[in-house]
Design a protein around this nucleic acid. Structure first.
Lengths: 364, 364
DNA sequence: GTGAAAGCGCTAACAC
DNA sequence: GTGTTAGCGCTTTCAC
């Protein structure tokens, strides 16, 4: 029993009123007699009428009350937190979220962006993978609003939300330096990724300030998965003059390093970028650069909404990071007896902000 | 410099051809002379024309080549994996994914579903929170295709993808029973949630089969966050005749239980529903009911696509679970020396499937 | 091969 | 207060 979707004309006929009256009632406009309002609602309910948003938006000459979110991978906890944050702000304005994963493929990213343009989204939040986003300039001139997240766009001036990569990496490196390490290995993604370059720069900067030479032989860029990182860790440890500590540039690297250390019963100190929800339960103590991913999403959404409301001067927001130490020196020996040990929920063990405020100002 | 978005009419004028010719070229139809094709493409590029999908779909009388995904919380790892799985299949058909979080609020869920109906999505994948979905019947009769995920819908016959809750819970309980426990505590969400009832039923069933009495005083339903679960764990442990083991009905419960045990240096055995990515790095050994959330999303998307292609007989798919043991008895004492210990990436320590196949068949 | 006209379902402007 | 008309940007007849 597959019936056709009723239109306003159908409703008008059913209610015995004119088309415009139905439109008025459905849109909650005033100036319709209570009796007709009732008849229209009755007909709407009887026919199961749902106003066609396509026709409505088309006629009104506007976009589709929706925002596009182009990220690397929806399945990654960082991005899903971001998506959640974005959603929290956009849902209040009755925007629909169209999510798409670029999979770090510039071509795919471009395709998704243009696809969303064709769907006439009002705005987009993009985690840029492509090296050049000037192709968006034309869309922007035609009314598309864009906010970049996690990395700045190249070839384009636009609102941007970034994480304090430099400060976080410095804090993570200082943590290891403070514990007396001079041979610190670094594991990270390819250096072509902007965030990775920033984090590496922070690492170098912290070493330089401490007068510790940059360990060329301990810098391992390329691994993608935890398994890759574990293998790389093994190789580093098996080399001559092995590292005594590790700086993992993202959560996947951290997990890989820890897994290999645990497998060996090794005791290297570890710090890493990106927080891990369950780090308080780990056998090994470590320090992680933490930041609020959902907040990054919320800020991006906020910037986008402001733009849709008319703001035109580009802004940049930097999300602050915090170094969180998980587990104590004694942790791992079947949980500490004191309350000062690792714990996942509740207050964190030790925090040190790498940035004072949430720094927002004109940029570009 | 905010210019108006060009339409096909603009392109036609620019190229000096008729409207229909532009339409033909833009849609890759044959039967246009190469010369005109070229002129049209030139004009398209010059003006930055992007075909308006709203107008196109409206005129064609079809839906918007999009699927809606209504889940509980995009930020939850389980749901973001599901979303990723859905996306993997739908992107190939050039569908756009509209994601929305119901936040376990039946009213909100209903609102989101109807909103997506107004947007004329072709189909929806819903994790049902509401108790009654018969209101969807009308939409379905008007062409909407629906697949339910994680829980069956009530008051409605439709395609459904479920996890083997019963089998998983039995396996998790058996694990604890096999280790000699008779006083097993259960922590879980409210029993009004279908999955929770299933998991509890599995727990009861395993106990009954082992001749162990159901421990009324150790069943704690209600906690939502890890902190709630930790507090509940503390209360259970501080009571008279405390439990010697815990069955945590979801990942948040598991984390809470472990956190409290770790804080106390306690040694209770733990098993839990839902896998945790980093469980191999935990100080405490445990067993987790694991299943492929992304696969659940893919299967749901597959069912939806089949429906869009014309299938009409309702189907049900059950995603199998596996009990994964993390860490050995010696784990936690600063990592085991042998390779048999916990490790996160790579092959899992010990698996025992709770279901033979991926069971798919007619249902409803 | 190509283009003019009609119309998808709705809203905006105007008459009644 | 209410209904009629036109038209959003596109596709679909159907002439030429």
């Amino acid at each position: 029993m597959r019936s056709r979707r009723p239109t306003m004309v159908d409703v008008a006929r059913e209610a015995g009123v004119g088309l415009k009256t139905v439109s008025r009632v459905v849109n909650g406009e005033s100036g319709v007699s209570p009796e007709l309002v009732d008849r229209v609602f009755q007909a709407v309910a009887k026919l199961g009428f749902r106003r066609n948003a396509m026709a409505r938006d088309l006629r009104a000459g506007r976009s589709t009350a929706s925002v596009g979110l182009v990220i690397e991978d929806l399945g990654n906890p960082f991005y899903s937190s971001v998506a959640r944050g974005v959603e929290q702000l956009t849902r209040d304005r009755d925007f629909v979220l169209m999510t798409a994963s670029s999979e770090e493929d510039p071509e795919r990213e471009r395709g998704l962006v243009l696809e969303l343009c064709q769907r006439r989204v009002e705005g987009m939040i993009i985690v840029p993978t492509a090296l050049d986003h000037s192709f968006l300039q034309a869309e922007i001139e035609m009314g598309l609003q864009v906010v970049f997240l996690d990395r700045p766009a190249t070839g384009l001036i636009a609102d941007t939300v970034l994480v304090d990569n430099l400060g976080g990496a410095i804090a993570a490196t200082d943590y290891l330096l403070d514990r007396g390490h001079h041979r610190i290995a670094v594991l990270g993604h390819e250096a072509k990724v902007w965030t990775m370059r920033q984090r590496l720069a922070g690492f170098r900067s912290a070493l330089a300030r401490a007068g510790v030479p940059y360990p060329e032989d301990l810098v391992c860029l390329g691994p993608l998965t935890p398994a890759d990182a574990a293998a790389a860790t093994a190789q580093l440890l098996d080399g001559g003059d092995p590292p005594t500590a590790f700086f993992a540039c993202n959560n996947r690297m951290t997990v890989g390093v820890l897994a290999e250390l645990q497998r060996r019963g090794g005791a290297a100190d570890v710090s890493g970028f990106d927080d891990i929800e369950t780090a308080g339960l780990f056998a090994q103590p470590l320090a992680l650069v933490s930041y609020d991913a959902a907040e990054a999403g919320r800020r991006a959404a906020q910037l986008l909404l402001e733009r849709l409301d008319g703001r035109r001067t580009p802004q940049q927001v930097v999300i602050p990071t915090t170094l969180v130490r998980y587990g104590s020196e004694t942790a791992g020996r079947r949980a500490p007896a004191t309350g000062a040990g690792a714990r996942t929920p509740g207050p964190r063990a030790a925090r040190a902000s790498t940035r004072a405020g949430s720094g927002s100002g004109a940029g570009g």
